[in-house]
């Protein structure tokens, strides 16, 4: 009888830990990342609707995986140039960000609200890894978490060179916007 009680208690504890542990992590596979290049000649915009991201609310750890070929453009030539000349997506198919919300303690994931955060980590793009430190927003709403950010990167930082013939059309500074709606990750 005693053994049984202990067993039930133990089992209950394991279940609690498992469930509680599982609820720490939130994910999406349909996050959005857009980039825009504003230059005197023309604006270029690429949209990716299938970004994978996981946030561990306990530690603040954050990871993104972006398939470069999943960016969509309005103009066929831009799509081609982006993949073949700039990011060389056959050689370097994905971009990865691994980082952490530096002020994670400032976010109450149990309470609805919008929190301003600071994200630090390493961004690997075009086979070049750089430290990045960007502002972001965490919105807790109805059991879901929305994580967003907007920042600039310099193409030259990632050894992406712009041919001199199109220097007027492509800006070296690219605006990146990130929008993700994260669901609890089960299992």
């Amino acid at each position: 009888m005693m053994f049984r009680k202990k067993f039930v208690l133990f089992f209950g504890f394991v279940l609690f830990v498992t469930v509680a542990g599982a609820q720490d992590r939130y994910f999406t596979k349909t996050g959005k990342i857009n980039f825009t290049s504003k230059a005197p000649m023309e604006d270029i915009e690429g949209k990716n609707k299938t970004v994978t991201a996981v946030l561990d609310t306990k530690s603040g750890a954050l990871q993104f995986s972006v398939q470069m070929k999943s960016f969509e453009f309005e103009k066929a030539l831009m799509q081609q140039h982006f993949n073949e000349n700039y990011v060389e997506s056959d050689k370097y198919p994905d971009a990865v960000f691994k980082g952490v919300i530096a002020n994670n303690a400032a976010v109450n994931y149990a309470k609805e609200g919008t929190y301003t955060v600071n994200v630090k980590g390493k961004l690997t793009l075009h086979n070049v890894t750089k430290d990045v430190d960007v502002p972001g927003t965490i919105k807790v709403n109805g059991g879901k978490i929305e994580a967003s950010s907007a920042f600039n990167v310099l193409l030259s930082d990632f050894r992406i060179s712009i041919p001199s013939a199109v220097k007027e059309k492509v800006s070296n500074s690219i605006r990146i916007t990130v929008e993700t709606k994260l669901d609890p990750l089960k299992g």
Binding site: F27, T52, D56, S65, Q67, P93, D94, L185
Partner: peptide, 22 residues
Amino acid sequence: SGYAKSSSDPTDLLASLGTTVQ
């Protein structure tokens, strides 16, 4: 346009997301 395979790397937060084809 791309794929990601599940990894066994314990530091990989995306490890439990399985294989994704886009």
